[in-house]
């Protein structure tokens, strides 16, 4: 009982913070929209991939990117809770560290999915003829949200694993450069992965975001490389492993 209430307490805090940090939310929405409209629009003028308009092609990729960034950043931000003594205040409560981890994951997942929902609403709007070839429906939006739900659990956990091992935000730039951007570029978000040099192929197959992008493209555009079940299986395995490692990392976390 106390564990459930503890999980709820952590979610409650994250949700309040999310609602109050509007500028962060706005920024996290604007960024993907710029990618879609400016990058996609600029490049898309002369490109179509697999018979699909380029902007429509990258829309699922941009969704995945937005969730990747917000999830990992959310997790890494636990360093700030450490910096002030807020984390100690939580760790000293009679709630297990596993529950604290789960509460954080649910909080981060809520954040990311709310942002994704806004991007899906924008997608529904853009499907009214603004982006040729993009025919997002409410049904496919919900499917996309389900895919993103499994994805974000894994990436929030990944962020929390990293954040729990860090003592300051110094490593943050490294994480962006060596983890977040490579995951994004090697996921097929912006181009089909078979366009990449063959030595990079193993990395794309190891990249969980690859399967998210493929699954999203499947439910939104009807094109897929691996098939929906395979994609969802791979993402689930990734998220499951991330939760396990995350629980362990929280158990061992120094404060």
């Amino acid at each position: 009982m106390i564990e459930l209430m503890g999980i709820y307490a952590l979610w409650y805090r994250e949700f309040k913070v999310f609602l109050r940090e509007r500028s962060r939310v706005v920024a996290s929405i604007i960024n993907p929209v710029l990618w879609l409209l400016i990058f996609g629009g600029g490049l898309g003028a002369n490109v179509a991939i697999k018979g699909v308009n380029y902007q429509a092609f990258i829309y699922p990729g941009i969704l995945a990117q937005a969730v990747l960034f917000s999830s990992v950043f959310f997790g890494v931000y636990i360093v700030w809770d450490k910096k002030i003594d807020f984390l100690k205040e939580v760790l000293i409560a009679p709630v297990s560290r596993t529950s604290i981890f789960i509460g954080k994951v649910i909080g981060g997942t809520t954040d990311s999915l709310l942002q994704a929902s806004i991007l899906l609403l924008i997608g529904l709007l853009l499907s009214q003829g603004f982006i040729p070839g993009l025919h997002l429906t409410i049904y496919s939006s919900l499917l996309a949200l389900a895919v993103l739900f499994i994805t974000t659990i894994g990436f929030v956990s990944l962020g929390l694993i990293l954040g729990s091992q860090m003592e300051s935000m110094e490593g943050f730039q490294m994480i962006i450069s060596f983890l977040v951007f490579p995951l994004f570029f090697l996921s097929g978000a912006l181009f089909p992965i078979d366009n990449l040099p063959s030595w990079l192929t193993p990395f794309t197959f190891l990249n969980p975001l690859t399967y998210t992008v493929d699954a999203l493209r499947n439910v939104i555009l009807g094109i897929s490389q691996f098939g929906l079940l395979y994609d969802i299986g791979m993402i689930s395995v990734f998220s499951f492993i991330a939760i396990l490692i995350g629980t362990y990392a929280f158990e061992k976390m120094k404060v």
Binding site: R13, K16, V17, R20, D85, F86, K88, E89
Partner: peptide, 14 residues
């Protein structure tokens, strides 16, 4: 137990 920490530990967005 209860504890008051050396560094601020309340959440100022709340």
């Amino acid at each position: 137990i209860g504890m008051v920490f050396q560094d601020p530990s309340s959440d100022e967005i709340l």
